[in-house]
Amino acid sequence: MDKPVIGVIGVGLMGHGIARNIATKGWRLNYLRHAGNRPTGDLDAAGARGWSTAAEMAAASDVVLLCVTGTPQVEDVLTGSGGVLAAIRPGTVIVDCSTAIPESTVALAARVEAAGGRFLDAAMTRTPKEAEEGRLNLLIGGHDDTVADVMPLLEAFSENRFHAGPPGAGHRLKLLHNFVSLGMVTLLSEAAACARKAGIPETVLVDCLRRGGGHGAALDRVAPFLLEGRTDQMQFTIDNSLKDLTYYGSMAAEVGAIDTIARAARQTLSDLSESGSGDVFLPRLAEVLVKG
């Protein structure tokens, strides 16, 4: 595409970095004004235009990028109160960077195509830090021609891109990724809680894991909290983690896969959410489990 106009819905923890990279790398940017946005002064200074409604913004954009919480929000933006599907022009591309239920993604992609548009799911991994740096990983589902057309835009805010298959495949890959990532963090946190009750110092536990089979990205995100009380490596809540593992369970059931370990991790997170800890960042999970 030759520098299409980009509209972003969801300028929050992850979406702000995406929007800033788009605006500062030569694209004309529209964004939806919303109470959940991070401060947008830098976007405005880069020439971006804020809109009051999603439908009006979509009608003025060639590509509409969604960065919202999950399937209910995506469905509402496209076919509910947001009215985006009814507002798009022929050829408009919808890029869904959210984490969503693949069955819904496939159905929404078909509706977008029936309305004359095109659809990509481009789920994200990594953190708000990498979003601001333009170094996200994107897990992509879409038809080859659409992926090729939108690739220059995706490259503007990502470092690695994995085209997993047709629409819905990106969200399937994201759920697989998050099951492994969040499952490992949950496992490590349970071990850390047990270690604390058993009198093993966190410094010794982390050092042992780092030099052995427990080393990896999950430990790198949990260790700063265990050692220094920091949660900046993983600003992702227990409720969001529960949402993703619930979506994974739905996908596993859809394809007939075993999800015994996923159910156990999901139950741990569900119990903590029901006890009032849903808004706690996941690195604090060991602390919450000790108290529990």
Results as ranks from 00 to 15, higher is better:
Pro283Tyr: 11
Leu32Arg: 11
His143Asp: 10
Cys208Ala: 11
Leu78Ser: 04
His143Glu: 14
Met14Ala: 08
Ala48Thr: 07
Gly117Ile: 00
Asp259Asn: 14
Ser181Ile: 05
Lys129Leu: 11
Thr203Ser: 15
Thr127Tyr: 03
His34Ser: 12
Glu56Gly: 14
Leu285Pro: 07
Arg266Asn: 11
Arg38Leu: 06
Leu78Gln: 02
Asn30Met: 03
Thr24Asp: 04
His16Met: 08
His215Ser: 13
Met14Lys: 07
Ile261Trp: 13
Gly91Ser: 06
Gly50Trp: 09
Gly165Met: 12
Asp2Cys: 11
Gly170Ile: 00
Val206Lys: 09
Arg211Ile: 14
Gly214Thr: 06
Pro72Tyr: 05
Asn21Asp: 08
Ser270Cys: 13
Asp259Gln: 12
Arg20Ala: 12
Ala156Asn: 10
Ile258Ala: 10
Ser104Glu: 12
Ala35Lys: 13
Thr231Lys: 15
Thr40Met: 02
Asp44Phe: 00
Leu78Cys: 01
Thr146Asn: 00
Arg28Leu: 08
Pro201Thr: 15
Glu159Ala: 12
Glu133Leu: 13
Ala23Ile: 01
Val11Cys: 09
Leu176Met: 09
Gly216His: 00
Gln233Asp: 15
Phe225Ala: 07
Pro224His: 05
Thr203Gln: 15
Thr146Met: 00
Asn178Cys: 04
Glu56Thr: 14
Leu139Pro: 08
Leu182Ala: 06
Gly256Leu: 04
Arg135Tyr: 07
Cys194Tyr: 15
Glu103Gly: 13
Pro166His: 13
Glu113Trp: 01
Arg49Gly: 07
Thr127Leu: 05
Gln235Pro: 09
Pro102Phe: 01
Leu43Trp: 06
Ala114Gln: 04
Ser61Leu: 13
Thr69Arg: 14
Val74Pro: 08
Val204Gly: 14
Ala198Lys: 12
Gly256His: 08
Arg89Lys: 13
Leu120Gly: 07
Ser275Thr: 08
Arg135Pro: 09
Ser98Phe: 06
Asp62Glu: 10
His215Lys: 14
Leu173Lys: 03
Val84His: 00
Met251Ser: 06
Met184Pro: 03
Ala164Trp: 01
Ser273Pro: 05
Ala192Phe: 15
